[in-house]
């Protein structure tokens, strides 16, 4: 037994090293393809004064691929370099600082929407599993709500609730509650019927059955939904910031840098990169909470 546990530990450690290597390999491969395409078909480029030796290096790609032009696809180093440049001319804030600030701002809105959406989803699911009537009556509308495109709905929400953080949070909530509701219904009804009979034999109240059996049994399902919701809430917040009139977040930054694309495409790319990293980080936080909460159970994947 001890041997098997030790074995498992070794494989997980080996597996973890492999996972990290693999995770680093993918961005490396993306950069390689990216710059490879530009090397073959991008705009000519030169580095003046290589390493301060007074020599300059120039590359003229053999092909011309429109998609690989510096405007469509700026160099990786220009995107990365732009983080250290001023966000606007003569500003003493770098783009990197600005984007981190904007990401934190957007994340706060998203996290709020995520929390409210998760609670709303769980509450709806709890009501639906206790009342077939309400489930039949309302679940179709819950589903229908998700077929309305959020870009159409966002301005209406802003119109109803006014410009400001509240509207943005509502939009994030709107994208968040749905997966939690559906997974919640599934998870809260997942207990073994015999487990429910066991509770019945204890004359346990509905309340006790909910807290001691249904909710814990639903957690693996809920966390799957929460991981979807984590990224969805960030998308919701970014989309909502436009009509919501929030200047501080990533949404406004994306709109602005879109308008200034011709003069600095790398800024938009940098903003997209930061948005993606934000999504991954929020996802990872939820995943970490999941691992902690579900410790001891058979490990849930992903």
């Amino acid at each position: 037994m001890a041997e098997r546990i030790a074995d498992a530990a070794v494989t997980t450690r080996g597996g973890r090293v492999r996972t990290v290597l693999f995770a680093l390999l993918i961005p490396f491969a993306i950069v390689l393809v990216w710059e490879g395409v530009k090397f073959l078909g991008g705009d000519p480029w030169r580095i003046q004064n290589v390493l301060g030796l007074g020599v300059s290096f120039e590359h003229r790609p053999p092909l011309r691929i429109g998609m690989a032009s510096d405007l469509s696809l700026p160099h990786v180093w220009e995107v990365l370099g732009s983080f250290f440049e001023p966000v606007q001319r003569r500003s003493d804030v770098s783009l990197g600082q600005f984007l981190v600030g904007a990401a934190l701002y957007t994340w706060r809105e998203a996290a709020l929407g995520f929390l409210v959406g998760a609670l709303l989803g769980l509450t709806l699911a709890s009501i639906f599993i206790h009342s077939r009537l309400l489930e039949r009556a309302f679940v179709p509308y819950v589903i229908a709500s998700q077929t309305v495109p959020i870009v159409a709905l966002a301005p209406m929400i802003v119109f109803a609730f006014g410009q400001g953080v509240l509207s943005v949070v509502i939009i994030a909530t709107y994208l968040t509650f749905f997966p939690v509701t559906i997974a919640g219904i599934r998870g809260l009804t997942s207990p073994d019927p015999r487990a429910l009979e066991l509770m019945r034999s204890y004359a346990a109240s509905r309340w006790a059955v909910f807290w001691k059996l249904r909710l814990p049994a639903s957690l693996p399902y809920l966390f799957t939904a929460l991981k979807i919701s984590a990224t969805a809430s960030i998308v919701g917040a970014i989309i909502g910031e436009g009509p919501g009139g929030i200047p501080e977040g990533l949404g406004r930054a994306i709109i602005n840098f879109n308008q200034q694309y011709i003069s600095g495409p790398e800024k938009l790319w940098a903003t997209i990169l930061v948005s993606a990293v934000l999504g991954i980080l929020f996802f990872s936080v939820v995943r970490a909470v999941e691992l902690f909460v579900l410790r001891g159970r058979a490990l849930a994947a992903g």
Binding site: R194, A195, L198, K212, L213, P216, L219, G296, R297, A298
Partner: peptide
Amino acid sequence: QAPVLFDW
């Protein structure tokens, strides 16, 4: 017949 333990 089955233990029906709560795995959490």
